[in-house]
Design a protein around this nucleic acid. Structure first.
Length: 270
DNA sequence: CGAACGACCTGCAGGC
DNA sequence: TGCCTGCAGGTCGTTC
């Protein structure tokens, strides 16, 4: 579910709630995430203070008075602020209970997410090899052009590779490719520098716009306050197979690339 | 090194 | 109504 804008929306919502707060306890209802939650984690976290929350790619990083928590929302995860009055659903896997009574409640029906503790988040194996943040200065068309030389993968899959660029998922990869006029199956290594400049600008713009409206809610994404995102109203191609292209009115095509859905306008994207 | 693919898991929509 | 199939916002690990 969540790509960079949805995780960033979650981070911004949580920030004022958790900054400087003490963790009362972690209550785990189901330890079975992608990597099982460490049984010793509740004891380790009790009494620690949350200093701040960062985001790296699609990971939330809660910096604590000792170490850091890495939270990944997987495909179906959301993290919301609730109170004890809110009854947990079967997919509410854990509660991070704060000293003032607020609860960060993790919902993840598919359990593809992660909850990990580390002393050195930047050097954690899951984060160490991640590419640049697309909204940071180190990211631009020249970077994509250089990294793509000699690569034969479809540009869609190149953008989804977190070791190339952080946080791009299937929705925003396709929206940016549409905005840049690039066909998603085109080989990454055969795309010109100029087209990569346009693609990088499109990626930055689409991510910024999505963050500004709270991300995309296709079925169940909600921000930390439970509100949905609104960017789905601005989607040009993703999930719109058979519907008219916003530019030329010809039908959007859906076809699988590497086993995952791909959406594009065969006329506007080459 | 890069590329392709299976694996993990549940819920839901659509067709029959 | 109920069963079956395919699809879904991620990404790691294995194999070639």
């Amino acid at each position: 579910m969540p790509e960079l804008p949805e995780v960033e929306t979650t981070r911004r919502g949580l920030l004022p709630v958790v900054t400087g707060r003490r963790i009362e306890r972690l209550w785990v209802r189901d330890y079975r995430l992608r990597w099982p939650i460490d049984p010793g984690l509740p004891a380790r976290l009790a009494g620690l203070t949350i200093r701040t929350i960062d985001r790296r790619a699609k990971y939330l990083i809660l910096h604590l008075s000792q170490g850091s928590l890495l939270i990944h929302l997987g495909m179906s995860g959301s993290l919301r602020v609730v109170t004890t009055a809110t009854a947990p659903a079967p997919w509410d896997l854990y509660d991070l209970i704060l000293a003032d009574g607020a609860i960060l409640r993790l919902r993840d029906p598919r359990r593809f997410g992660a909850l990990l503790w580390t002393l050195t988040p930047a050097r954690h194996p899951l984060l160490a090899a991640i590419g640049p943040e697309p909204l940071a200065d180190a990211f631009d068309g020249q970077y994509l052009y250089t990294r793509s030389r000699g690569r034969r993968v479809a540009i869609r899959d190149f953008l989804l590779n977190s070791h190339v660029v952080a946080g791009i998922g299937n929705i925003y990869a396709h929206e940016a490719l549409f905005a840049a006029g690039i066909h998603p199956t085109r080989a990454a290594g055969g795309i010109s520098r100029g087209r990569y400049e346009r693609l990088a600008q499109a990626l930055i713009a689409v991510l910024q716009q999505a963050i500004a409206v709270g991300g995309t809610t296709l079925r169940d994404f909600a921000a930390s306050d439970g509100r949905p995102g609104y960017f789905q109203q601005q989607l040009c191609v993703y999930g719109r197979g058979g519907q008219p292209c916003p530019q030329c009115q010809r039908p959007i095509r859906r076809q699988a690339i590497s086993g995952r859905g791909s959406y594009f306008c065969p006329h506007c994207q080459r």
